[in-house]
Write a protein that binds this DNA or RNA. Structure first.
Lengths: 165, 165
DNA sequence: CTAAATGTTCAGTAAACACTGAACATTTAG
DNA sequence: CTAAATGTTCAGTGTTTACTGAACATTTAG
């Protein structure tokens, strides 16, 4: 393990754990490390160069992965007048973005089930149940997910009252 | 592309699409192919040998991936008296199983956020917002997901009335 | 018993993927 | 203009992962 940097061990451990978590859900570990560091860094804005140094990673990797995180909607690029460096920070409502992504996935699964049913029009009804269930549950979540997400946003807005912005 | 089997092109295309979908969500493509075929096969029960033949895959791969699907709770093994082959079929309520898996993941994210907040006890409050939001939204989903899932099971039970089992 | 059929395990291989580091592009300062 | 700083792209490399095929185990049939 290369600990040739001056970050407290616990912070780097946290970063590594977020990396492993991201890997678990099918994303590059390095994207998780970046996200992890952006969760705890002070200040929350960090430059490409700073990230490369803290995470002991190549510029190329950082560049690719920050773009990946931006594309996911989890991170945003911020620039400061008179400073040509780009800074990155966690996007507000990053997690709702992920929910929206998930919604697309659910839609794909529903469509796939529908296409499967098309292939089985002449099959006995009990053979179609598997696909029918797959179709119906995804159609159900496609309806419900946005409603729950909306409730979250209302609840969050309520909490923010009295805590300024 | 090896089409050295007598399955209609459209069925194999469907199988391949399910394979790609599984890959997209971080699972082995072959596990998706097996699941895809089990969605449309007639009958819904298929033996290890039959799967290997239809999908043009090795016995080893099929053996490993069926166990993987069983472990996920998506597929179950069924045996027939007087037939020593094992058969596999899609499990009823397979998708609710996946929801339960997802719930565990959400819990892990919430805990991770909590651990992050522990590292920042002495940081200025506005720096803690990122982690606070991460924590709160996951705690929210941890409460809501089981409720929505329960509603689905009720709705499904309603639909089954009049359609026998 | 042997032979055939079914299934699992695992070492080795092939393919996919993350990551590095160098070359290149662009901007800013002087 | 040049030099330094920042950022991107991409070919090559190393690692991880999926997959194959062979050896082995187990069951059934004859």
């Amino acid at each position: 393990m290369d600990l040739n940097n001056d970050q407290p061990f616990e912070q780097m451990h946290f970063v590594e754990e977020v990396g492993l978590m991201f890997e678990l859900i099918g994303m590059p570990r390095m994207s998780g490390r970046i996200f992890g560091w952006l969760l705890i860094s002070e200040p929350p804005q960090q430059s490409n160069t700073a990230l490369a140094e803290v995470l002991q990673a190549s510029k190329g990797s950082i560049s690719t992965m920050t773009r990946f995180l931006i594309q996911l909607g989890l991170v945003e690029r911020v620039s400061v007048p008179g400073d040509r460096r780009d800074y990155f920070q966690i996007k507000a409502h990053a997690w709702s973005q992920l929910t929206k992504q998930r919604l697309v996935q659910i839609g794909e699964f529903r469509k796939l089930a529908a296409r499967g049913l098309d292939l089985m029009t002449s099959a006995p009804p009990q053979y179609k149940r598997r696909l029918q269930e797959m179709h119906d549950i995804h159609a159900f979540w496609e309806r419900e997910l946005p409603l729950v997400d909306e409730r979250w946003e209302q609840e969050e807005a309520k909490q923010r009252i009295g805590k300024d912005t």
